[in-house]
């Protein structure tokens, strides 16, 4: 546990350098360009070291860049977390199964009631600073890591689903069936609740971003930025500063870790 990683200090240096570079770019370029910096984000975090509150991971979604009909982020999420391996129990109807299968990330298309303006956006766990799911969980299985990621400890989850009652974003899924072919990196099994965890093992292994962000960037949309919201020089912080964004259900004052621009 006490392994020292020599890269750690170097990392910090790189981080600052990139931050400075990003800051200069952001100051010069139009806000819309900022989102393309996502792929330039350096690897942060080190293996084998406890996460700290020095970082708070978050996402910024620019709905103007989110295309109708594109589901690259949804598919990438399913592949990353083994959700594409879910199979409908033979005796279940397709309609009922559609409501019972687990979905961590989904696309929604909305229209403004007055103007009819259409918005497309991905929806997932909003990683609140004050998550209602964590408050209500009787066993403490639902918890927020020091770095702001809301996770379910499946070893302690008893499957009461109270967190699903409490979540304002319908972000959680209950596993209704026995699971047999999980991925090694994403354990999941019958009777527990799960949701987006910001690709938590990527965080711990020091990877740069999440599966959905990679997919969105690879497709050339660049609608999602991932990063450390506590680092003022991180691309996400700069983008958040540069463009106006909103939280979903701001009225609940949950201080979400996922922000939406252009909504």
């Amino acid at each position: 546990m006490k392994q020292q990683h020599p890269e750690e200090t170097i990392d910090q240096g790189r981080r600052a350098w990139f931050g400075l570079a990003a800051g200069v770019t952001a100051a010069v370029a139009a806000p819309g360009v900022v989102l393309h910096l996502a792929d330039a984000a350096p690897a942060v975090g080190t293996e084998g070291v406890p996460v700290t509150a020095a970082a708070r991971w978050g996402l910024l979604i620019d709905t103007n860049k989110c295309l109708e009909g594109c589901r690259d982020c949804v598919d990438a999420c399913a592949r990353e977390n083994g959700l594409d391996r879910q199979t409908k129990p033979a005796a279940q109807s397709s309609a009922a199964w559609a409501d019972q299968r687990a979905v961590w990330l989904r696309k929604a298309k909305l229209a403004d009631n007055l103007t009819g303006r259409v918005t497309n956006l991905p929806l997932m766990c909003q990683h609140c600073e004050h998550p209602p799911c964590v408050d209500v969980c009787p066993t403490g299985a639902s918890f927020k890591r020091a770095d702001g990621i809301v996770v379910v400890d499946r070893h302690v989850c008893i499957g009461c689903r109270y967190c699903m009652m409490a979540c304002p974003y319908q972000a959680r899924s209950f596993i209704h069936e026995a699971v047999h072919d999980q991925l090694t990196g994403v354990p999941r099994g019958k009777g527990c609740v799960e949701s987006c965890n910001l690709c938590v093992s990527r965080r711990d292994h020091g990877l740069a971003s999440t599966a959905c962000v990679d997919a969105c960037t690879a497709a050339g949309h660049g609608a999602i930025v991932f990063g450390d919201m506590k680092d003022p020089a991180s691309p996400i912080s700069l983008a958040l500063k540069a463009m106006s964004s909103r939280q979903l259900r701001e009225d609940l004052a949950l201080n979400t870790g996922v922000r939406y621009a252009g909504l």
Binding site: K109, L110, A111, N113, V118, T119, L123, R249
Partner: peptide, 17 residues
Amino acid sequence: PLQMFPGHIILESGFFD
């Protein structure tokens, strides 16, 4: 349904919204 987007109607969703 939960009122996630006041003032909006949800036209399509990959989950029940």
